[in-house]
Design a protein around this nucleic acid. Sequence first.
DNA 1: CTTGCCGGATAGAGCGCTCCACCTCTACAG
DNA 2: CTGTAGAGGTGGAGCGCTCTATCCGGCAAG
Lengths: 335, 335
Amino acid sequence: MGQPTMDDVAKRAGVSRSLVSLVMRESPRVSDQSRKNVLAAAQELGYRPNHFARNLASGQTHTIGIMLNDLHNPYFTEMAEGAAAAATDANMQVLITSGWQREDGDGAAIGALLDLRTRGLILGAARVAHGLFDEVANVVPVVAVAVFDRPERFDTVCNDESIGAELVVDHLVDLGHERIAHITGGDSPSGPERQTGFIDAMVERGLAPIIIDGAFEEHAGHAAATQLMALREPPTAIFAANDLCASGVLTALRDLGVSVPDDVSVVGYDDTLLAGIGTMSLTTVHQPRQQFGRRAMELLLERIDGRSVASHELIEPRLVTRSSTGPAPTEGTMT
Amino acid sequence: MGQPTMDDVAKRAGVSRSLVSLVMRESPRVSDQSRKNVLAAAQELGYRPNHFARNLASGQTHTIGIMLNDLHNPYFTEMAEGAAAAATDANMQVLITSGWQREDGDGAAIGALLDLRTRGLILGAARVAHGLFDEVANVVPVVAVAVFDRPERFDTVCNDESIGAELVVDHLVDLGHERIAHITGGDSPSGPERQTGFIDAMVERGLAPIIIDGAFEEHAGHAAATQLMALREPPTAIFAANDLCASGVLTALRDLGVSVPDDVSVVGYDDTLLAGIGTMSLTTVHQPRQQFGRRAMELLLERIDGRSVASHELIEPRLVTRSSTGPAPTEGTMT
DNA sequence: CTTGCCGGATAGAGCGCTCCACCTCTACAG
DNA sequence: CTGTAGAGGTGGAGCGCTCTATCCGGCAAG
């Protein structure tokens, strides 16, 4: 005799199990009197509906699964937070799993979610396994966050990288910069998009885009910045692929005795914790990551309600100005 | 006709449902031939066991719940990763929920896990609601991570703060420091423990512990460091409550024109991403957070297997030396 | 007074599995 | 040849719910 069951509640309230079931499902076809009796009985017994039995019998759950292939990436956890909030509003329960970056971890994690018969899935994946996603999308509605192409089988939500790059370029141009370099994020997701956005924004403003290969890592920023400053005409502003990369840039510039922002302005991307700390104080692009999650959940619920055409949404980032950017040095001032 | 069921597989393989069930549960009492047939049939049909039916029928799950009240705190996500790894080894599935720092969010999240009949719970909670934990521990085995008192109802795993403080003090003393100050973490969890650890370690070495109030935040570190450097005899080493606090210290020292580590050495705690970046390069205490999770899971499994006395485990941290610490300045060198 | 209708409640057949009791068959000792 | 053990397999009764069909009793309409 572990947990009390619906029958126990029914017996205690002197009604049928069916009636208890109706009450639990908040059906309107129950008299107030009965409802009150049943709830009282349930309360006294400490009754909790057994989700398994419920789901088994109804063939439906109220669960949305979120799979994050990297739980340590604040990008995704914040996204998940937004999604969870939206789910709560829609009376859905959220469950999170992670592939823990293991071999086939994502597949296993998604499998676990499917086994729990989640109604839909939100996938947050830095590394995208498209075959896997397509396959899953056949079984259940799927929304992917931070996927940049426009797949037909599932919806996507991602940052508008072109606007992000524009914000950066505009800001720097407004400060009088003309020789602006971008350190790329390589082939990693968002990398190419940021690069393209930057080139477009520069060309549109009649400026020559300076591009140097990098990665979303500190040492890549360090190396790239060192190379840039060795040019015959070094840039007066550096737009790094992300904050971590920018931190490498700052270290390199400090080592070279170049002053930020007096000699060179530096911009990052992502507005991570890093950007805010005193020793960095980095101008960077902020992505409303919780909103990514909210929108993803909304799209997913629409899908569950029957929408069948794929929807791909871009969310606008905004610029956060700190003290790593400043007016361009007047020509000849530089060393 | 949605998903295929066990009966479908049985029919296809020409055996009874019971046999299929045995195969699915990897029972040894099945001939290799039958097993092969069944698995083949299951494969062809794309059969996936329905967890709800399974759990309902067996009255048991293979699920462990992890509740983190702050999913953004890498401390907890890394812990969860370790726990998940240990769970996989034990053939258990892990589900994560979060209270998202909302009012009663923790309670709701735990409730959701209990509704899923998780076999046990690992609670990672910066803010501890002891009443809640005790209550839950009555229903299901519980292990709490980062809880410092020694509750009777559930197990705990946490960092050995006294060893952490000793490592720091030893390192600084070895470098010749004598005037060592600690900026506290206030009343937040770990704060008092670190403070006590520091005081004990100093006294044991015959040194006067200098204590100044702070918090696990950057501005607190900044303020405290400014106060410290205004003392008639400023300390030659500062042990901040955590890395974020230490980053405030570094900024303050830079603003004061104090050189690190030539004039003052700085130590942080937690070995966060921050500590590693070039502009900080902070000596700090590293906690093996994944191991916290592993141990928590192991303790939980023991509990599930029947252990009833509470177990409280301390895990040893280690020191990571970077360039924010150096030999104590010879007397009189300071400004 | 019968009929139809409707709000409110109920009985009972599953949902897809697990697990216990039991059955069958072969192998081998007595 | 009977007895027995054990490996391999089966039947069927649930697990705690949901949901459809159905029932009941009162009341307005015919």
